[in-house]
Amino acid sequence: MTPAAPIDLTAYAGWDAPIFLIAEAGVNHGGDLDTAREMVRAAAAAGVDAIKFQTYSASRIATKASAAYWDRTQEPTATQFELFSKYDALGEADYRALAAECAAAGVLFLTTPFDIDCVSWLEPLVGTWKIASADITNPVLLRRVARTGKSVALSTGASTLEEIAAAVALLRAEGAQSIALLQCTLSYPTAAADAAVGGLVDLHAHFPELALGYSDHTQEADSYAVIAAAYTLGARVIEKHFTLDASLPGNDHYHALEPDGFVRLRSELNRLRTILGAPTKDVLDNEQAARTHARRSLVSRGDLAAGSVITEDALDVKRPGTGISPVELDAVLGRRLAVGVPDDTTLQWDMFEGADER
Rank of each mutant, 00 (worst) to 15 (best):
T292W: 06
R291F: 06
H293S: 00
I310F: 12
D313H: 08
N286K: 13
D282I: 15
D313Q: 12
A314R: 13
G307C: 02
L298F: 08
E312A: 15
H293T: 00
I310N: 09
R295F: 02
V317E: 01
A306N: 04
L284R: 15
D282Y: 12
E287F: 12
D316V: 04
S300C: 00
D316S: 09
V317M: 09
G307R: 01
Q288F: 07
R291H: 04
V283T: 14
T311H: 14
S308A: 12
N286R: 14
Q288N: 10
I310L: 11
R295I: 02
A290V: 00
A306D: 08
Q288H: 06
D313S: 12
G302P: 04
D285W: 13
A290L: 08
V299T: 02
T292S: 07
L315T: 12
A305D: 01
D303G: 03
V299R: 01
T311L: 14
R291L: 05
D303I: 04
D303T: 01
G302N: 01
S300V: 03
Q288T: 02
D303M: 05
H293A: 07
A289Y: 09
A306K: 12
G307D: 03
R291K: 10
A305H: 01
R296H: 09
H293L: 05
A290H: 10
V299C: 04
L298E: 10
G302C: 01
R319E: 07
A294W: 07
L298M: 01
R296T: 02
D303N: 11
E287W: 10
A305K: 11
G307N: 08
N286W: 14
G302S: 03
V317N: 00
A306E: 01
L284A: 15
R291Y: 06
L304G: 03
R295T: 03
S308T: 11
V309H: 07
T292R: 12
V309Q: 05
I310A: 04
Q288A: 04
A294Q: 06
H293K: 01
D303C: 04
T311P: 13
H293I: 09
G302V: 02
K318S: 11
P320V: 05
D285I: 07
G307E: 07
E312H: 14
A306W: 11
D282V: 15
T292G: 10
A314C: 15
D316K: 09
S308V: 06
A289Q: 08
S300E: 03
H293M: 05
G307W: 00
A314L: 15
L315A: 14
N286C: 11
D313V: 00
S297G: 04
H293E: 05
A289C: 04
V317Y: 01
V309Y: 04
A306G: 08
V299M: 10
R291I: 02
R291D: 02
I310Q: 04
R291W: 06
D313N: 12
A305T: 08
K318W: 03
D282Q: 14
A289V: 09
P320L: 00
S308E: 10
R296Y: 07
A314V: 11
L304A: 03
A306V: 01
V317G: 03
S297H: 05
A314I: 07
D313G: 00
E312N: 14
L304W: 07
R301M: 03
A289W: 08
A305W: 07
N286E: 13
G307T: 08
I310H: 12
L304R: 11
R319G: 00
R291M: 11
A314S: 15
G302M: 02
